[in-house]
Design a protein around this nucleic acid. Structure first.
Lengths: 335, 335
DNA sequence: TTGTAAGCGTTATCAC
DNA sequence: GTGATAACGCTTACAA
């Protein structure tokens, strides 16, 4: 019941331990012949190197961390899938760690994770991507990190993001083109910079169309169903209610639809509903809905891709490019 | 920029390395006095032991694996949260690994994960919990593992589960008590043993009430929205449609409700809808719904709890008890 | 192109 | 109660 080690492989292949290590790490200067012999031995013995030993001896741990503070299962699931996919390709492991950006223990939590696991890099998703204490701690430790959908200091670090302003502008313009003049907006959680960006896009499109901005048409929300419902109640109770409501997430869009349903308002017909499709949720339940799709999986994959590029050039602290995954407007399904 | 090691701590505390190690591992035979001195030094230096070194030198890696093959974000999210919570309490790390139970590479994938990370144990969620090749591989390697909601060989290994038969029986009986005689059932994905168990409970309740079983009232489903919608279409198109529909997941229940809505059928009123509440989804969107709540978080927490108990008794291969998290019937919200 | 030797930071073993 | 010292399985020098 003892473990298969690199020694077993080197014996089987008739070479030294170091040569096996060379093959494992794809180093240069290994003859084609010995490389094949080693690989054969590895496969025959079903050898898998100990990550603990590699980490202890080497400079890399082949592990990166994914830090989040997000209660949305769909978001987390897709983000993990995207980051995980890129990690698997590169032979890395992803360590997922939830956190609380408002906790004083935040930087301790992240720091001890890095220390204990000797992480090679970190991916921060919103709202952690804009948590100043966390960013400072990572800078101090000089550990490579990539932010997903950051709202501040966009050029300070590598990051992957979609253009929220443009996306919200597109959708608002779409609703205007359908003839709407009073368009309600349900904003996202205040912790997320995306919420403000979406408001900006909304206002931008209104202004371009010469439609005055009415603060009464903008309601606060927290990205979840309940706040979407509540916001719709408020909007529909206005003296001059909107003819269209644009929700900053699909969960809130579902909440808007539930409220409309409850009040006997026909959708579409009496009310148009649009939303950001963060989670594939609303679109499936309620076909008469127009959405802007946010490619979360792609955002995660791209973030991991940026991060793992550090591997090749350990000296560099930052990459000199950013990757932008653009939002795509879904084909207008309803109105 | 060099790492803080156990040596630094022992110097600071004026004791030997071994003594620091003793404190870290909560071993006996350390005087209260030196223990406090060591703990103070640890805190002062902000020391975090290297997991790689502990794993390499010791018998434990302080890591367990969570293996799943489940496309449901809510399920995975809550399961991870439950398992992760127990791990954190115990100072363990959770490694999440998706897999494909139909792939021939399944046991290789799991095996290499165990080898590379030196996992101390494994948690299998459905449907992996019943994947024979995986179970055999784990048995062969003699690694502790716990199954969540297993369908076969319930007593063969430790596991956490709810009583699906009883839960489905309860719900069906509830619908019967409301006066329903024709109750449709939308079954879950065929890969999951829970699906069959729920059918059993449904039939059991019907029989007890002296209601004949009508196969036409049972529709296949895959736990997702679309299949719920489709199943409802089929049921409502029957010559004698059901007056109540019981869906084996809440996503399917939402699909049923969407179909009813589309067809202009009032819920409740013309149709009662009930479902298993796996994800909190349907209940929030559609209040007029009765659900059986499946405590996924608790199932994960319980599984991790069982698994980590091995830590105390390394010699044992199996625990001699099972933990059952019973399903609880939610207060009848609608009808 | 290949091999030798010295760690990496902890735990296990066995003394004191 | 406490402390030396040898592993653990690999990578990093540095030779050959």
């Amino acid at each position: 019941m003892t473990r298969t080690t690199i020694k077993d492989v080197s014996d089987a292949a008739g070479v030294s331990i170091k040569t096996v290590s060379r093959v494992l790490n794809k180093e240069k200067y290994v003859s084609e012949d010995t490389r094949l012999r080693v690989e054969a031995a590895v496969a025959r013995l079903n050898y898998h190197p100990s990550l603990a030993a590699r980490t202890l001896a080497g400079r890399r741990s082949f592990q990166i961390g994914l830090i989040h503070d997000n209660p949305n299962p769909y978001y987390i699931y897709n983000m993990q899938a995207g980051v995980g996919a890129r990690c698997r390709e590169a032979g890395f492991r992803m360590i997922v760690q939830p956190c609380d950006i408002n906790s004083p223990a935040l930087i301790d939590d992240i720091g001890s994770l890095i220390d204990q696991a000797q992480l090679d890099g970190i991916i921060l998703t919103p709202p952690v991507a804009d948590a100043a204490p966390a960013l400072e701690e990572l800078e101090r430790r000089r550990i490579p990190f990539v932010r997903v959908q950051p709202g501040t200091d966009l050029t300070a670090t590598s990051s992957s993001f979609i253009d929220n302003v443009q996306a919200a502008d597109d959708m608002t313009a779409h609703l205007i083109a359908l003839g709407h003049r009073r368009i309600g907006l349900v904003m996202g959680h205040a912790n997320y910079v995306a919420s403000g960006q979406r408001l900006t896009g909304y206002r931008q499109a209104l202004q371009r169309a010469g439609i005055g901005f009415d603060p009464a048409l903008v309601q606060a929300g927290q990205f979840d169903l309940q706040s979407g419902s509540a916001a719709a109640e408020a909007l529909l109770a206005l003296e001059r209610p909107p003819t269209a409501i644009f929700a900053s997430s699909d969960e809130m869009a579902a909440g808007v639809l539930a409220t409309a349903h409850r009040r006997g308002i026909a959708v579409p017909g009496q009310l148009s509903v649009a939303g950001f499709d963060d989670t594939d949720l609303a679109q499936v339940v309620w076909p008469p809905l127009t959405t802007i799709r946010q490619p979360i999986h792609a955002l995660g994959y791209a973030a991991a891709d940026l991060l793992l590029a550090f591997d090749e050039r350990v000296e560099r602290r930052r990459l000199d490019h950013e990757l932008i995954v653009r939002a795509s407007t879904a084909p207008p399904g309803g109105a």
